[in-house]
């Protein structure tokens, strides 16, 4: 066939039959899923003259219950506790993690050994056990005091349980556990920064801490941020374990409700929906944070979802404006 210059030749794309079958199966599956989620089941049926007569119908998933309690005062109060726990535990974890990671990489044997031991202990035991441990710390140390060691001369002296009330114990447990994991994330970030960066900073006369603050940490952030987002989302859900020491978080609140109504599944669906909403918001925040700390590392930052949607729409629009077929010899 002879083509010259800008003659348009129609291009026939390959037909993927198996893909169409796949799509059809998926559509069927989705339809089944939607049906079961939004189907109703009878509540009371009576047998009369050989046939069943059912009167009351209810959502299989108890949607009326879900929506009835969705913004219930107890639930919202629990949600706030969950968010507070997440934020405070992450702050404790991040601060501890950065300090421990820097200690771990220190030239001082004392500091690096201390850091290693901390990570070893808190990463090596289940977080659930740690939550219980801090919750019942008063059993081990009924009193906490500041004074001269091995004497009874105290400057400050108080009941342990006055400080380690359930909420504080939960923050301590989650924060200390997170610190151990986070220090490893920070450490990998610090190691990932090219040694030449440290050398250049050193050759300018920067001290180790100046180098760390001005050059290494900001670059390590690019490596640290993505797993941090992951950790925050993970923490959001891990906080539900604090029910064990009688902290009424989101899960605690719905548990209290279903203990009275016996509507267990709708309440769990309700809690899951709230967890999903918050983690979705967190994922969006993570995207923009990554974009911010990626500046300088990439020549062009990745588009935001809004920019991407706009670009795709523009692409579709221009596709329909041009004639079907490809101009041979030109690219458009």
């Amino acid at each position: 066939m002879e083509t010259n210059g800008d003659a348009a030749v129609e291009v026939v794309p390959v037909r993927h039959v198996s893909r169409w079958v796949g799509w059809a199966l998926l559509a069927l599956f989705v339809a089944m899923l939607v049906h079961t989620i939004f189907s109703k089941i009878p509540l009371s049926c009576t047998l009369a003259k050989g046939t069943w007569h059912c009167s009351k119908y209810n959502w299989r998933f108890g949607w009326n219950q879900v929506f009835h309690y969705f913004t219930n005062g107890q639930v919202l109060k629990g949600l706030v506790v969950t968010l507070e726990l997440t934020v405070l535990a992450m702050i404790v974890g991040i601060v501890l993690g950065i300090v421990v990671a820097i200690m771990r990489l220190s030239h001082s044997r004392l500091l690096s050994a201390a850091a290693w031991s901390y990570t070893w202990a808190f990463r090596g035991t289940p977080v659930y056990v740690q939550i219980l441990f801090w919750g019942f710390i008063g059993d081990l140390y009924p009193y906490l005091s500041i004074g001269i060691p091995f004497t009874h001369v105290y400057l400050v002296h108080f009941h342990a349980i006055s400080v380690f009330i359930p909420f504080n114990a939960a923050v301590a447990a989650l924060g200390l556990n997170e610190g151990a994991y986070f220090s490893e994330i920070v450490r990998s970030g610090l190691i990932a920064v090219d040694e030449g960066q440290t050398e250049a900073a050193t050759s300018l006369g920067m001290t180790r801490s100046q180098t760390l603050r001005n050059v290494v940490l900001p670059q390590a952030m690019r490596v640290i941020i993505p797993p941090t987002g992951n950790e925050v989302i993970s923490m959001l859900k891990t906080t539900s374990l604090v029910v064990a020491i009688a902290v009424i978080d989101l899960l605690g609140a719905v548990t209290n409700i279903y203990n009275q109504t016996y509507q267990i599944m709708p309440m769990l669906i309700l809690a899951s929906l709230w967890y999903l909403i918050v983690s979705t918001i967190l994922s969006i925040g993570q995207f923009y944070l990554e974009r911010f700390f990626g500046r300088g590392a990439l020549r062009t930052p990745p588009p935001t979802p809004i920019q991407r949607i706009r670009r795709d729409l523009r692409g579709i629009a221009s596709k329909y404006r041009t004639k079907r077929g490809v101009q041979v010899g030109t690219t458009s």
Partner: peptide
């Protein structure tokens, strides 16, 4: 003392 490196080592951030 100023130093210039083979691989530039400009601060990427």
């Amino acid at each position: 003392i100023g130093m210039v490196f083979q691989r530039f080592n400009l601060f990427q951030n």
